[in-house]
Amino acid sequence: MAAMTMTRAESRPSDDGPSRVQTFLSRHGGMMPSFAAVFILVLLFIGGEIFLRGDFIRPLTISNLLIDNAYLLVLAVGMTFVILTGGIDLSVGSVMAFTGMLGAKLLAEGLPVGVAVPAMLLGGAAIGLFIGVLVQYFGVQPFIASLAGLFLGRGLAFIVSLSSIKVENDAVLWLQSTRIKIGDWVITPTGIIALVTVAIAAFVLHLTRFGRTIYAIGGSEQSARLMGLKVGRAKIGAYVISGTCAGLAGLLLTAYSNAGYPRNGIGTELDAIAAVVIGGTLLTGGRGFVLGSMIGVLVYGTIKTIINFMGAEQAWMQIIVGALLLLFIVVQRAIVARSEGRR
């Protein structure tokens, strides 16, 4: 009987107090990729500081990171919900362009902000709902359903207008032009909106049943259903949230560029996906953090800033982001392989 008793003892963590490292790993192993992202961010900062001779780590540079990438951060937050369920949303770039155009058009027609902004958010939510319904009720793969959303958003953006529409509404311009200074740090209302979005998302994902259902679906949709969770509602909800975030990003980008432009956001969905993955969210779903996605966006923004500072070709941006994405998926792959091997 000796052998059996021994194997049983191993599976009972209570027998011996496991080491702290073991406890930590068994609790937070899923956070390792996000830690890696933080590590890369720090490396980038240090690298920037060294190459740019102390000109990089300054409050203004870091403030601008957030201000310049506020729209991407909001997109990445929405994308995190979808990817956590094991799906993907390719539509966000063009939905952002569409809602931006819609808002600019409504404002140009003389409608008040109180109508234009809700219309933008609802427009985004509607396309999200459309994708979610295709995925949940028609069994369409998320890739294809959101591809339809991508086409739809882009086409609608051009239907609103073929050329850019200037925005002269004070309230919208205020979002970007106001600079709130705290010491040497600067933030705009757009930046605050982005941070609030992150905070709300983190709350929803970690402290509500809806959020936990999103994680459960990503872990195993079948299990989630058998556990009696409201799977359909949560899955559609994820796409609606992503669409709404795209609508909000449309507002932020319009404020940032003072105009709606139908060609905005071509390929931005890929940047958002890259940021989410770099931030440690597994593309297979179920593991990841919205704060990680924020780190991912900051990594993205930092690379962009460094390239600008160095005056290097924009081409490097794409190459470096591609390489980082590769690095992270290989790391994730290794982590998943290890956790499978342990079982």
């Binding site: 890929l270 996906i273 890259a274 924009q314 081409a315 490097w316 941006m317 794409q318 190459i319 982001v321 591609g322 390489a323 994405l325 590769l326 998926i329």
Partner: peptide, 10 residues
């Protein structure tokens, strides 16, 4: 996706 992003840069 990696090459989709990086390819245009190349």
């Amino acid at each position: 996706l990696v090459l989709m992003l990086a390819g245009r840069g190349v």
